[in-house]
Every structure is written in structure tokens, then in C-alpha cells.
């Protein structure tokens, strides 16, 4: 352990703004891309399902028309 207390750990020996700014920006961008990927996948699946439901509900009518 390089630090004796939590305060010391957070202060980073006077370099706190630099170390934490770099780490937080990294964490924010990586988490952001992860969340973006999840939202993207969810919305794609939702759209696909909606389209499929619509197609299924339209199918009987179409068959009647064809007949």
C-alpha cells in the first residue's frame, strides 16, 4: 500500500486534480461507450420486434385480400 489513509489516497500527494481528471475521463468514456452499445442493442431489438409484430398482424389480412 502506497498510502496511509483514504485522505492521502484521494490527495495523491498533491497531484489529485491531474490523476483523478485523467482517470475519470477514461472511466467516463469507457462506461459511456458501454452504455451506448447497450442502448443501441436494446433499441434495435425493440424495433425489430415491433416490425415483426406488425408484419404478423398484417399477414392474415393480406391472405384474405389475396384470396
Amino acid at each position: 500500500m502506497a498510502f496511509d489513509s483514504l485522505q492521502e489516497f484521494l490527495a495523491m500527494g498533491g497531484h489529485a486534480p491531474y490523476v483523478w481528471a485523467a482517470w475519470c475521463m477514461t472511466a467516463a468514456l469507457m462506461l459511456g461507450s458501454l452504455i451506448h452499445a447497450r442502448v443501441e442493442r436494446r433499441s434495435l431489438l425493440r424495433d425489430l420486434k415491433r416490425r415483426e409484430r406488425r408484419a404478423m398482424s398484417e399477414m392474415p389480412r393480406k391472405e384474405v385480400n389475396d384470396a
Binding site: 500500500m1 502506497a2 498510502f3 489516497f9 495523491m12 500527494g13 498533491g14 497531484h15 491531474y18 490523476v19 482517470w23
Partner: peptide
Amino acid sequence: LAFAPADYQQGNS
């Protein structure tokens, strides 16, 4: 962040 020793030149940065 917590366990590696600080650099002798640059400190914790």
C-alpha cells in the same frame, strides 16, 4: 492507484 509505489521523480502523477 493504491499499491504501486510513487515515482521518485514525478510522484503520484
